[in-house]
């Protein structure tokens, strides 16, 4: 394997002391504190229009409909429009995942199946939801557009084993996604 060395950026003493960033962060906190003390907290208008008020009464009231389009929830696996399970078990997501939440067990595609050209698919695919930090790196690195972060945020496993989602669950949660690049067919 070839190794390419990458230079880390040099930080000045001020950067390394971290004080400036700390003060900046605290500034934002105090700004919000001050605003809410005078009754002008952020987004108050929108919420009161919807009858939510300053505090959302969870679980009767929920974020679901109000989540921004870029919200990052639980990662899931998706099928393409052709019904093909898109993941080819390249294990790049396993490699990139900073929390080491993903474990892929690679396997082969049955030679007689309709997507035999793909040759490879996971025999098992596990994501440990107790480890996942919803960073979205897996979605970004996937060369097959097979893993996407959903809007699901209510994840309440009963025990550690229960927190590990297997391939079947991940595909069920991911469903079918339209408009993805069509690969591994007879034209390619």
């Amino acid at each position: 394997m070839a190794y390419i060395s990458v230079k880390r950026p040099k930080f000045s003493l001020l950067d390394r002391l971290y004080v400036v960033e700390l003060v900046k962060g605290l500034g934002i906190t105090f700004k919000h504190l001050a605003l809410s003390l005078v009754g002008k907290s952020r987004g108050k208008g929108d919420f009161s229009k919807e009858g939510v008020g300053v505090c959302m009464q969870f679980p009767e009231e929920r974020w679901d409909a109000r989540l921004p389009e870029y919200y990052r929830g639980a990662p899931t696996l998706v099928r393409g429009e052709d019904g093909r399970e898109r993941c080819v078990s390249c294990q790049l997501c396993e490699f990139i995942c900073p929390a080491r939440a993903i474990k892929v067990t690679p396997g082969s595609v049955d030679e007689n199946s309709s997507c035999a050209k793909q040759e490879k698919a996971p025999a098992e695919f596990e994501i440990d939801m107790l480890r996942c930090i919803y960073c979205g790196m897996c979605q970004e690195v996937c060369p097959e557009q097979a893993i996407f972060l959903s809007k699901e945020y209510l994840i309440t496993p009963q025990d550690r084993k229960d927190a590990v989602r297997n391939k079947e669950t991940l595909y069920r949660l991911g469903g079918t996604r339209k408009g993805l690049v069509n690969k591994w067919n007879q034209y390619k």
Binding site: M1, I4, V88, C90, Q118, E119, K120, P143, E144, K188
Partner: peptide, 21 residues
């Protein structure tokens, strides 16, 4: 070249990948 890297066992120690980089 079919650009099979995601399913190719050589990926990661492939001269073609390295030289393409």
């Amino acid at each position: 070249h079919p650009l099979d890297c995601p399913i190719c066992d050589q990926a990661g120690e492939c001269k073609l990948q390295e030289y393409t980089a």
